[in-house]
Design a protein around this nucleic acid. Structure first.
Lengths: 298, 298
DNA sequence: ATGAAAATAGACTGCCAGTATAATTTATAG
DNA sequence: CTATAAATTATACTGGCAGTCTATTTTCAT
């Protein structure tokens, strides 16, 4: 009955949008979603945990949409970036995320605070990575500052502009305006050569778990190599080798590997059960799963 | 026993700084400040009301310090502005205001939310007024946008920079950096002639109570005129006329009249009780008091 | 079909904000 | 100085909440 858990999250989300997070009591959620207390505490250890589950699912959705927009596009094309940011704001709006965030930060639950904080850091990191794509290597020393300033500008502009009109066109206007500003700021700040925070700070905020990631990558490489070897007997090895190589490349060389892509490739590979030894495929899947769990923890 | 109320506020403030607002129960406040529940609810109708009282006193302090810095200085001197912003951040830091604000916004108390929101608007308005001083009239159409962006940049930069070092020099660095950016942004945005929000929006966010203010101003003008007339018999009328004119000018032509200044001038005027008719002075004082109450309500 | 394991319902506990009432102090008038 | 009214303060009480515990039902593997 996993749908039931999803159902509870959905109902709670509705209540949060309608009444606000704080104002929604657990009893409200029980009544509205038609479950009992035992069930609730079986799913979540607290209201905060439920919120974290909800936010995670929204984060995932945003991430997925952002990645779809980038697929097959030039990463240095700023128009793509603009669309990505628009999506992000649009999702915030439709999920009442901004008010949720604001509410949430006053919580005294340390875990929830950490979660939100990590979320902010991840947004900064994502923006920073995109800025590297867009503005190029020579601007890099200034790009962490610029990411932080960009998000500050964007949030503030949106906050006050949306008082007046809170529509899709409002979002577009705000995003365009904010991006226009940051483009000039990047130029200006590089010229005046002022730096507040060196980009390396990011890795201390969000440690890459480099050791464990490295170790996992080696295991993955090994698994895939042995899979490729066992392909020699296949009648179209090239196609499968390409797929395997893609997986490896996506996991090892991409900042944020696209889970859904990898999963679809895996499913293709699994359509021919005769290709590999029974355990090998499973082993690979297990490792990939582990990899994403690792990613998630940052 | 009015000190007792102040004492409670002070003790609560300490607790808020130590444990956070949400995590502090009313019982904690009662224990820590050695009063009983009845007393507490006699002073404040709720914990939120206490918070509002606390914030008001902090706002006043900040405002006073800011005004002191501006006294006798050139308002267009950006170095003065920098010092004012530094003071503001410094006060936020020492009072743990930023975390308080963040906590507070997730409250479901509508009154408290409105209060905080109004506080944000006032900061924007103050910044906007200062920007008008600094950047001049021709930049005015862009200065509301710039105020909003400046505060976004400043907050974000400070938020993330203070993770690394949270000292007085950190504040200075962040403020200098942020001001350097906004100076260039003002130039750039004026050149590209882009506008998001027209500055008139401010008055709709913070209505001036124009009607009542206008009416009060006329009354004031009248009172002061009659006081000036009665001065003809004095042996040094000029000095007192100047003082009276100063009060009128400060109240009518200044965006944020400096209460402490006006009060000190009033006290000087009152040192010579023979100067004016008994009731006239009192009437003036009453009107000025009314004026500030009006101001406070926006 | 049966027994173990997981899911569910709802009663129960303790805490907290806010209220009502009782006791005490303070102010005022005779 | 005393009596009485008013304000202040202390504390007992209420209702609602989050979270726990236990008994019951459902699910699933064998």
């Amino acid at each position: 009955m996993k749908d039931r858990k999803q159902h509870v999250i959905k109902m709670a989300h509705q209540l949060f949008i309608d009444k606000g997070f704080q104002a929604t009591s657990i009893q409200d959620i029980l009544d509205y979603s038609g479950i009992s207390k035992g069930t609730f505490y079986n799913y979540f250890s607290s209201k905060n945990e439920l919120l974290i589950a909800l936010l995670k699912s929204i984060y995932e959705k945003i991430n997925k949409k952002r990645n779809e927009l980038l697929m097959g596009q030039d990463p240095s094309d700023i128009e793509v970036f603009i669309k990505q940011i628009e999506i992000q704001l649009e999702m915030n709006r439709s999920n009442n995320l901004s008010s949720l965030f604001e509410e949430v930060f006053f919580s005294n639950d340390e875990e929830l605070k950490q979660f939100i904080k990590k979320g902010h850091f991840r947004v900064i990191r994502w923006t920073h990575n995109r800025f590297k794509d867009i503005f190029g290597h020579d601007k890099e020393p200034y790009l962490l500052d610029c990411s932080i300033m960009f998000l500050g500008i964007l949030n503030h502009n949106y906050k006050y502009y949306s008082i007046e009109s809170n529509s899709r066109t409002a979002i577009k206007k705000v995003v365009r305006y904010s991006v226009n500003r940051i483009v000039k700021i990047v130029e200006e700040v590089a010229e005046s050569d002022e730096q507040l925070l060196p980009p390396e700070k990011l890795t201390s905020w969000l440690p890459d778990c480099k050791k464990s990631t490295k170790a996992l990558q080696q295991k993955l490489q090994h698994s895939i190599l042995s899979l490729k070897k066992s392909l020699h007997h296949s009648h179209e090895p090239l196609k499968y080798i390409e797929l395997l190589d893609f997986i490896l490349d996506e996991l090892v060389n991409t900042k944020e590997p696209r889970k859904f892509l990898i999963e679809s490739v895996l499913s293709v590979l699994k359509t021919e059960p005769s290709l590999f030894k029974a355990g090998d495929m499973q082993k690979l899947e297990e490792q990939i799963k582990q990899y994403f769990i690792n990613e998630e923890l940052l």
